[in-house]
Design a protein around this nucleic acid. Structure first.
Length: 198
DNA sequence: CCGGCGATGGTCT
DNA sequence: GACCATCGCCGGC
């Protein structure tokens, strides 16, 4: 029921992917083998070079190169000198687009070989997935993951399917922090599951 | 409870 | 040298 999402899942229209990722599970395996599982509850789309809010609107640079590459790779960048943001690359190679994971709900953590469930608080400081910077901090996600695959376990970070969220429970909102993006700032390309709406 | 602002460094001009 | 897809603190109500 919770199968890893394959590369083909990401090689599609970003506006479908950004909705379908809601309710899916972000799985993080730490270096010591501990695993934490978190439900994706808020996502945001950045689509193409025309989208002035999309980093790729600046062109293909060292930083944005991964967005121009094949789908299903992680794109992690540093923001404000102290936080990271986690994205997964979407669409066909050559077309730069990605989905930002804005919030997750920590479900449970498990020993790598599943012997016994343990509480997420066992991972130390209270896990807080409410915000793109906070979830990266708590899941120890850094730019080192950029370019690695979201559709294999090798990177230690991957996504599995979950219980699909019906359209009626999805809320569309304007994107955050992109007031500079002209007409593109008003696109309602941020999505939350209704259960997590303020 | 809230709005404003400072921290802090990578990236691009 | 300016700009940031953020967060949490602090002061005012």
């Amino acid at each position: 029921m919770t199968k890893i999402l394959k590369e083909e899942f990401y090689n599609r229209d970003t506006l479908n992917i950004v909705r379908e990722l809601l309710g899916c599970f972000l799985i993080r395996r730490f270096d010591d083998g501990r695993i934490i599982k978190a439900k994706i509850v808020e996502t945001e789309a950045y689509i193409g070079q025309d989208d002035l809010a999309c980093h790729a609107s600046k062109g293909r640079t060292k930083r944005t190169d991964v967005m121009f590459g094949p789908a299903g790779r992680w794109y992690v960048y540093m923001i404000y000198g102290m936080y990271h943001c986690l994205n997964v690359v979407t669409e066909q190679e050559g077309f730069p687009a990605a989905v930002l994971i804005r919030a997750v709900d920590p479900v449970k953590s498990l020993r790598d070989h599943g012997a016994r469930p343990i509480k997420s608080k066992d991972h130390g400081a209270s896990f807080n997935g409410d915000g793109p910077g906070k979830l990266c901090r708590d899941l120890q996600i850094t730019r080192a993951l950029t370019g690695t695959k979201a559709y294999t376990r090798e990177s230690g970070l991957w996504i599995t399917s979950g219980n699909p969220v019906s359209e009626s429970r999805i809320v569309a909102l304007k994107r955050v922090g992109v007031d500079y993006a002209g007409e593109w700032k008003d696109k309602e390309w941020r999505f939350k599951t209704a259960d997590y709406t303020d």
